Amino acid sequence: MPNGDLNTFVGQRSVNGETVDVWQADVHPGYAFCLSTDNSIVAIVITIDGDELVAL
């Protein structure tokens, strides 16, 4: 599990057909990571000025 003192759970999204949890880094609000049910990072999401880049 991500450290709740450093990251905030912001919801869920679908990545490659799998529903994953999305956590945002508190010190860098434009950066988030997606965790599968086994807590593996399956995607990194970077949002700048409303545009989103997803690294799988």
Rank of each mutant, 00 (worst) to 15 (best):
A32D: 04
T37R: 15
L35I: 04
I41E: 13
S14E: 00
L56C: 14
N3H: 14
V10C: 04
T8F: 12
I44H: 13
W23A: 03
T8K: 11
D5H: 07
D5E: 06
N39F: 14
P2D: 14
T47D: 09
Q24Y: 03
A32P: 04
D26T: 08
D51G: 08
L6F: 12
D5I: 00
G11M: 02
G4F: 15
G11E: 01
N3W: 15
I46F: 14
V22S: 03
R13T: 01
V20W: 00
G17V: 04
N7A: 10
Q24M: 07
G30E: 11
M1Y: 15
T47L: 03
G4Q: 13
E52R: 12
D51T: 15
F9L: 02
S36Y: 04
H28W: 13
I41L: 08
G50S: 07
S14K: 01
Q12S: 05
D49H: 11
Y31I: 08
T19K: 08
V20T: 04
T19F: 00
P29Y: 08
V22T: 03
L53M: 12
G50P: 04
D26C: 03
A55R: 11
V15F: 02
L35H: 03
L56M: 13
V20G: 02
I48F: 08
D21Q: 05
G17C: 05
E18M: 10
I44Q: 13
Q24I: 03
T19L: 06
C34H: 00
Q24P: 01
S14P: 02
M1Q: 13
F33W: 11
V45M: 05
G11S: 02
N7H: 15
S36Q: 11
H28A: 15
V15W: 02
A32L: 05
S40C: 10
V15R: 00
N39Y: 12
Y31F: 14
T37S: 12
L53T: 13
V15I: 09
I44D: 12
D21F: 02
L56V: 07
S14L: 00
I41Q: 15
N16D: 05
A25K: 14
G17N: 07
P2R: 13
T37W: 15
F33S: 07
P29F: 09
Q12N: 07
R13H: 00
D38K: 12
Y31R: 13
V10M: 05
P2K: 14
S36V: 04
Q24C: 03
D49S: 15
A55C: 12
I48P: 05
V20Q: 02
A43W: 01
G17D: 01
